[in-house]
Design a protein around this nucleic acid. Structure first.
Lengths: 141, 141
DNA sequence: TGTGGGGCCTCCAGTCACTGGAAGGTCAAG
DNA sequence: CTTGACCTTCCAGTGACTGGAGGCCCCACA
């Protein structure tokens, strides 16, 4: 199979597949013409990667997961630990977004949204910083 | 005020403040020694930026919001539109993360997490792609 | 046998919003 | 006069791609 075929069948863009080779996630063979030649097992791995990425695992997680997948003597506890760690990060992210969402929704609901200049959204953003809050805004990304 | 003072009082790292100058969000004056000299209005603007960024607005949104803030003849509808657009993007993001979370939590709960190699998480990731689903995985980032 | 078009190759640059670090100038206290 | 904190610029790296230029390769059709 050429890259176009695996792109089609895995759902990943050809560019992404080349990138995965570049960072050592896959090692397709090469034909005499220099074209990448993919076997079924390469496709399988790409599909694995596509699903792991769709679940939000980082590339480094994917590397770990594939290594575990190929390791017959793995312990499922290792896999579970990676997944749980990721789950916690997702939970943190959701919590952070929900907090933003709450504030933002409140502001939006207070804004008339008409042709007058008065706007509670801008007023909120322009508040003075309370003096004692200095240096207290860590951990926001 | 020097950059260290505004960093302290705005809660933004000095590096970030220099970056904001570089991309034209702020224009502090300069002293004879080459140091940036910040006035209260610069600090105010940085605090505005810090809060807008904490709500997840992009830098480009911030540019727009500051321009609107400084425009006496703005219409609050313009501000509201920017905020609503952003709110929708947050909602999309939350929905996407919750969907990932659901799948992942299910997989984690199915995994024994012991010293045996059998692992439903890996099994799920390694599933074959159904033939008819080819090309149907758009919109996942 | 030539030609056209699509697929493939590599390499480079850009994304977003910073962040880290090196090399060096400035300032105030002791 | 030295020390150390603070400031400066410039360059490179982050994550995970994505876009584009410039150029080969291959196959079908005339």
């Amino acid at each position: 199979m050429n890259i176009g075929d695996v792109a089609q069948r895995s759902g990943l863009p050809a560019k992404t597949i080349r990138y995965y080779e570049e960072i050592g996630l896959i090692r397709p063979q090469r034909g005499e013409n220099g074209y990448r030649r993919f076997r079924e097992q390469d496709l399988h791995k790409l599909a694995f990667l596509g699903r792991a990425r769709a679940l939000g695992f980082t590339i480094e997680d994917c590397r770990t997961l594939i290594a575990l997948y190929e390791d017959e003597s793995r312990e499922s506890g290792q896999v579970k630990r990676v997944a749980e760690e990721h789950l916690h990060q997702i939970d943190d992210k959701i919590a952070q977004l929900q907090s933003m969402r709450a504030t933002l929704a409140e502001l939006v609901s207070c804004c008339a949204g008409d042709d007058r200049p008065d706007c509670p959204i801008l007023e909120d953003l322009a508040q003075d910083v309370p003096e004692e809050a200095v240096g207290a805004s860590e951990g926001v990304r």
